[in-house]
């Protein structure tokens, strides 16, 4: 699984670095940054990556190569 942030969409809400601080950080204006090299998500960070993507109000956090996410519904309540 790989993550990225679309800088044309990110507005600095900061949900990603609140929810997945091992994967995302903030720059000096509050916009999100990807902390892991090449965006590669460690196996134990995949849930956090999905959580960050699902909570971004601007849908700026992108998760690539996730086979699980496609089955899920936006706005779904806690399982």
């Amino acid at each position: 699984m790989r993550i990225s942030i679309d800088p044309s969409l990110c507005q600095g809400h900061g949900r990603c670095y609140d929810l997945a601080p091992d994967l995302f950080g903030e720059d000096d204006e509050g916009y999100g940054t990807v902390l892991v090299p090449d965006g590669e998500v460690p196996a134990d960070g995949e849930d956090d990556a999905r959580l960050a993507a699902d909570n971004c109000p601007e849908a700026a956090v992108l998760v690539h190569g996730d086979t699980v996410a496609e089955d899920r519904v936006v706005g779904e309540a806690a399982p």
């Binding site: 507005q11 699902d54 909570n55 109000p57 936006v74 779904e76 309540a77 806690a78």
Partner: peptide, 18 residues
């Protein structure tokens, strides 16, 4: 739902005026 995990709310606005 105080434990809502997925919550893409817009309380702080959307777009350039976040």
């Amino acid at each position: 739902l105080v434990d809502r995990q997925v919550n893409r709310h817009a309380a702080f606005g959307l777009g350039i005026h976040r």
